[in-house]
Design a protein around this nucleic acid. Structure first.
Lengths: 205, 205, 205, 205
DNA sequence: AATGAATGAGCTTTCATTCAT
DNA sequence: GATGAATGAAAGCTCATTCAT
């Protein structure tokens, strides 16, 4: 009655199917255009959910962004935490598994992987503060996961941190490329990822 | 097209100084926000050139985009063509020189390097067709230039094309990072570029 | 109207307590903001009664307004009729008693006095016709009541009708002032009323 | 260029005729419905000036309100200051002259008198602070003007302040009544004002 | 009876574009 | 050539009203 129940809880009491329609609509438009240029009308169009309802559950576009970003990041963290990583695994294998994990998200949230990258780049001052914490948590968890790997082979190279940078930039670019085609193909993406990872691994070994 | 004097020629009869004020204003806003989210009002603000004039020379925002993109690509091609490349140069040295060339553009058109990358990624259907040709020409010229290099050391690796991809993605990411700081520092950028290039080169050699 | 049971009767079969929660919510918001600017959401908030129920009993905001206005006016008329007025009472004493009567309503319907005045001023064409009849009836009953007074002292002044106008405008303004403070104080209001009435009475005597 | 010129100055460089069309449109709608419920669309309708232009000159509805309120209050103060008041004038004559002054404004700004009263009552927190100063200044000037009068006859009555209150409440109510008819009649209004003032004056003398 | 999810028209505000000067 | 006033469609958001449960 009145207070007592947060906006978010209200949203969670919707039918799961509708929740996901809305989440996917928001993720898609936010991922493609960023916070500022994402239009609620376009979310209405792709989700089939009326404009009024978006604002019934989320006070504002900024509030919606904060919620969906936080939701997506949490979902990704759960996905990450489901991989039981053997201490000392091969770095490149681990990195590939992370990408595999992203592909597993696609079934439920087709734009989530792209959205995650766009969150990382988001710098609109209206929302940047609201997503700071979950964004950092996700980055840290990803960091922790990769630190389980055996860095010995990498550390043989003075510049291994630069090489890791390069790999990260590359994978992000490959993902964005994948979304440029009419329909995202998991297989194609993972093949590309594997090829690039192996190319680098071979050099290092 | 059809009239006695094309839009472009009319624009070129403006004072060079004003031309550049407009070009820079457009490049900056287009580079930062992409075609769709770029606001003409913001170009007016940063350039100090009145709104009416923009539409006097360029019939629409799309026409403006096509012109500025084409102009920027041509300018970059001229810059590229001014490097007299010794056949058989080191690939990595050549790649670095290309980045140096971008830095030379900065004096006249501070946002041109960023704009070039944003053109490559632009996919708004309203303008994508209009910039197709110059965009491809630029890509091709860049390609031709780099083909002057001696690929022998690279070709020792089956995956050398993938490695080149990775380098390109990396340099693009570094450039975007550079623009994220309040003022773009040529020196810092070139240092970063050099470090990453050398890291890769060492692996290959 | 036409159906077996009128809207109103349905409403009256609710628990008295809930009826009053709704009536008070509506009176408060209508009194404070007028018909047009009154928001149903705000009534939901202050009353704690769900949105659907409001429209279950009252087909529209206009219907609700008509009902609550009519209800409030009737309630006020009953309150008025409970004063057994001695024929030939002092006009000013009678006028004061009317205000005392309003204060008695406050216990059950805290915003009713303010609402009554706002009804008198309401001119939104969507509802003005619907409340015409009860509004006039109330005005007339009030008129009748005051006509019981001994007008002889007043009639010594040619302009006594104008003086009565002035008193009415004044009392209405004092009431509105009373509602502007965080909590309406009956005592303070009646003191103010008394002071103004006496000031006028002294002049006339 | 750019800054240097305030919004207001921009507005003042419009043709006087158009300025007044906009001022009158805003005054009318604000006066009739108050800040909150006044709709810019309605101003567009009554003024014939396009929606975009309102926001070209006034950053927001609140900014518009602040400007128009301030403008109206200033205009009224100039009108007030044009009356050269003989020290020791009859209070009631002076009070009447003030109302005459309001009627003189009607030619240029038909809703200004009503707007002035609505400004005095405005309590929307979004604008109340913005109009605080001019509102107080106007009240004070009006006060100063009336203090020129000879209060001796009034002061014979202990309660003369209450009587002045009553007169003020009355005149405000009469003005509002005047605006309720389809067309405001200066003559009728001033006649009513005169009658009420005289009624009170006679009592006091 | 009772709830609150759902809708779309309407509101304030922005923005590409036109036009008079 | 140059300005910026002027426009209306569309954006984010509110609100009376409907409807499934």
């Amino acid at each position: 009655m009145g207070e007592g129940q947060s906006m978010n809880e209200k949203f969670y009491s919707l039918k799961k199917e509708k929740q996901d329609k809305m989440l996917n609509g928001a993720m898609q438009i936010f991922a493609l255009y960023g916070y500022r240029h994402a239009s609620t009308d376009e979310m209405v169009r792709v989700s089939g959910v009326s404009k009024g309802l978006w604002f019934h559950y989320f006070e504002s576009k900024a509030g919606l962004y904060a919620f969906v970003a936080s939701y997506g990041l949490k979902y990704a963290m759960i996905e990450l935490s489901m991989r039981t990583v053997r201490q000392g695994a091969d770095y490149f294998a681990l990195r590939y598994e992370v990408e595999e994990g992203k592909m597993r998200m696609l079934d439920k949230y087709p734009y989530l992987p792209l959205f995650l990258d766009s969150i990382a780049r988001e710098d609109d001052e209206e929302v940047v503060e609201m997503i700071k914490e979950p964004r950092e948590k996700y980055a840290e968890q990803l960091q922790q996961l990769l630190l389980q790997a055996d860095y010995a082979p990498l550390k043989a190279h003075d510049d291994y941190l630069l090489l890791i940078d390069m790999l990260n930039y590359t994978l992000e670019a490959l993902l964005a490329n994948g979304y440029r085609s009419p329909v995202f193909s998991k297989e194609r993406y993972l093949t590309e990822v594997q090829k690039h990872i192996q190319a680098l691994k071979k050099l290092i070994a």
